[in-house]
Design a binder for these strands. Structure first.
Length: 114
RNA sequence: GGAGUCGGCCGGGCGGUCGCUGUCGCGCAAGCGGCAGAGGAAAGUCCGGGCUCCGCAGGGCAGGGUGCCAGGUAACGCCUGGGCGGCGCGAGCCGACGGAAAGUGCAACAGAGAGCAGACCGCCGAACGGUUCCUCCGGGAAUGCGUGGCAAGGGUGAAACGGUGCGGUAAGAGCGCACCGCGAGUCUGGCAACAGACCGGCACGGCAAACCCCACCUGGAGCAAGGCCGAAUAGGGAUCCCAUGACGUGGCCCGCGUCGGAUCCGGGUUGGCCGCACGAGGCGCGUGGUGACACGCGUCCCAGAGGAAUGACCGUCCUCGACAGAACCCGGCUUACAGGCCGGCUCCAAUC
RNA sequence: CGGGGCGUAGCGCAGCCUGGUAGCGCACCACGCUGGGGGUGUGGUGGUCGCGAGUUCGAAUCUCGCCGCCCCGA
């Protein structure tokens, strides 16, 4: 499986950038995640993540979810339009098996193309 | 072999493809290649330090902490050794373990009485009085009724003014004796905590995780500390206090320092670099020490992000993988944790 | 990273400093007043005092260790 190379440019950073995405009020839900997005000011997609302590108390679990999100983003990146996306994890994601979460993520990205 | 106890260690392995962070090398550059890349608890933040700033961090008070003794350490509330007490057949384990004879306090309910106490049921005919009986008229005997004596036994309580036994006595009582306990006595051993022997007499109950006393320790904040570079805005307005005044990050005072200061309104700031990873460092050997540990020599370089790096997928093997993710660093403590390995010691059983 | 606070009846709180009885309001139940409801009066039910150790004769209260929640500062 070939993943696109990501750089610092594909990281969404700063409170202002996050707020801009949330204000756009465009959203798609999957089983374990919420995808907020807005048209990017740049010529490529950027990813931001929100996995709060409410999802799971243990940082190990939160980090695992972030890695899965990031890795799935890399795989899907080339096919995505230039959007700024914030992925928000639902608390149920912490309880679910890893494989199931991964499949949920892979299924979700193509639906954002619309 | 079984049961137990103490100490130390590991905590999925191997191979492949793609990707992430740092660093080194090459390249004008996009990049390419090499190397390294979470833990024993990284956790909780309960202690102790390093480092940085607060002018020096100086004296006193207040506050806080520690609490058998000695040692180790940068330091500690940690560790080691020893003492004392408790548990265990034992190896071992556990202990907030200074002072109650400096003072002030506290003890519900029950109970007669709860701290220089007390007599409910009791016990006592030795003493004084009474009553009854006997009498050889001197007195004698009985009786707990009164004056009284006692606190052994019963009973209450968490606790009842040393315990057990013997003697003693009217009944009793450290009143006497033995043992135990106790003691601010003496001697001996030990750096000390303390222990042993002798001596003394029975007085000095418990609670200091009650106030407190004693000894020792303790300035405050924190890497968003703090520093450098750059950019930008402002050099304002209002109110109040004024130089025996105001301010300074400590709770207060002294001392010291500064000369306007405080509050509110308005305005600006959310770049980059350093701090930031070579350290009270790891490993090996030697020496000293019972040990914690120290010293010497050799050797190694071992995460360093900044919306935050370890992932995805495949193959394979097994005993199918617990708790869990660094954010300035280090030493401890505490808490979580599937399974497994190594060594010391103890008890039991059996065999030679 | 640092600082502070809370946890007691179904809910909101006192009691804790100074240790011995867990109390108040609302709610709930029963009865009375009313034809019924509402309202009101009287009586009553209901608490492992977040969990685990320790100190004490005795702990909601004192001490230590955990757990959960909330707030504040940079």
């Amino acid at each position: 499986m070939r993943a696109a190379k990501t750089t610092r440019a594909s990281v969404l950073s700063g409170k202002a950038a996050f707020d801009r995405v949330f204000v756009a009020r465009l959203k798609r839900n999957s089983r374990y995640f919420r995808f907020h997005f807005a048209a990017s000011e740049l010529d490529h997609a950027r990813l931001g993540m929100a996995v709060s302590r409410r999802v799971d108390k243990r940082s190990v679990v939160r980090n695992r979810l972030r890695r899965q999100i990031r890795q799935s983003f890399r795989l899907a990146m080339a096919t995505l339009p230039n959007l700024d996306i914030v992925v928000n994890a639902k608390p149920e994601a912490a309880q679910a098996p890893r494989g199931e979460v991964w499949r949920d993520l892979l299924d979700a990205w193509p639906r954002l193309r619309a």
